[in-house]
Design a protein around this nucleic acid. Structure first.
Lengths: 164, 164
DNA sequence: CGCTGTCTTCAGAAATTTGTGAAGTTAAGG
DNA sequence: CCTTAACTTCACAAATTTCTGAAGACAGCG
């Protein structure tokens, strides 16, 4: 049997969750196919699916899977594994790694900071606009440190709550 | 004179910063016009511009300004002010309010949490996938508290650094 | 060495998003 | 009230993005 009672793991329940969570991700700016693939992985039993499984479950072409997976791997939301002795590839969501990646807007922050620094510079640090930019810059610099500390606290909290 | 020496506030310096900062915002998912309008406000002397000024500086139609400003106001990145005794409207970036808004993904977080909760429920809390979703949910709940505390620390830090 | 399963790349069709001009709405000023 | 400045809404053209089928590349296997 695929599934029996109550809180079911039947195809429809899974699909319902996948689509609704993906919709949230899309709204937050993620590409649609990437979001759907990611949600499908999250909802899978092992946290691992092959390209074919993804394609079948989501009803999308191999090309779409390929594109989505490339994006997800680049942003470290999933990792790819070569199933040894086969040309199949498997994609895995690492459970605790992906939201760290989510927080890893670090690269993004760095670029924002660079743009702001240039702005302070070119508008002049003593102009009102320059001061405004400088304060914004300070905020991002502050954030960067805080986020790191926060993730550390999360790890501790996680151990306590979910055991290791 | 509009500007004299060195770190110039000439139209070109401003425009260069505006476009480059806007580009970063776009890359992070913001609509292009909204990003440009916002950057222009950030780089303005008073942090306030009228619709006409925005349109002229960015070379965009009133319709585009209107759309951008609506988005920015909805997300609390800027506030609108009726200039009293005139039909002009002015848009202001609040210097210290907008990045609080940036952090106010709270509404977003809430919706993610809702979707995850539904997922845990429908996949079953004792399935591997259910447990994975539950942990993710816990992460977001943890985040929500942390972000609030972090912003409080920023306010303190800000006072110290920039005076009150 | 050639066959075959699997992923990737590519060109183009389809859908979506974006920005504009023009018409519509609102309210200040005479 | 009527006029008119200022913002908003709307329909559409243009640009961009998205997804697919088909061809290509790569690597196991016989």
């Amino acid at each position: 049997m695929t599934q029996a009672s109550g809180g079911g793991r039947d195809a429809e329940s899974v699909s319902k969750f996948v689509e609704s969570f993906a919709a949230q991700l899309v709204e937050a700016g993620m590409q649609r196919m990437a979001a759907r693939v990611f949600a499908a992985l999250l909802a899978s039993d092992k946290g691992v699916l092959t390209s074919a499984e993804l394609g079948e479950q989501l009803r999308i072409s191999p090309a779409a899977v390929s594109g989505a997976v490339r994006y997800l791997a680049q942003t470290h939301m999933v990792s790819r594994e070569r199933e040894p002795g086969s040309r199949r590839e498997r994609y895995r969501v690492h459970g605790d790694q992906w939201y760290e990646a989510l927080t890893n807007r670090e690269a993004v922050l760095k670029r924002w900071e660079a743009a702001l620094r240039e702005g302070v510079d070119s508008l002049g640090p003593d102009t009102p606009a320059g001061r405004r930019l400088a304060e914004t810059l300070a905020f991002f610099e502050f954030m960067e440190g805080e986020v790191a500390a926060m993730m550390e606290r999360w790890r501790v909290h996680r151990e306590k709550t979910f055991g290791m």
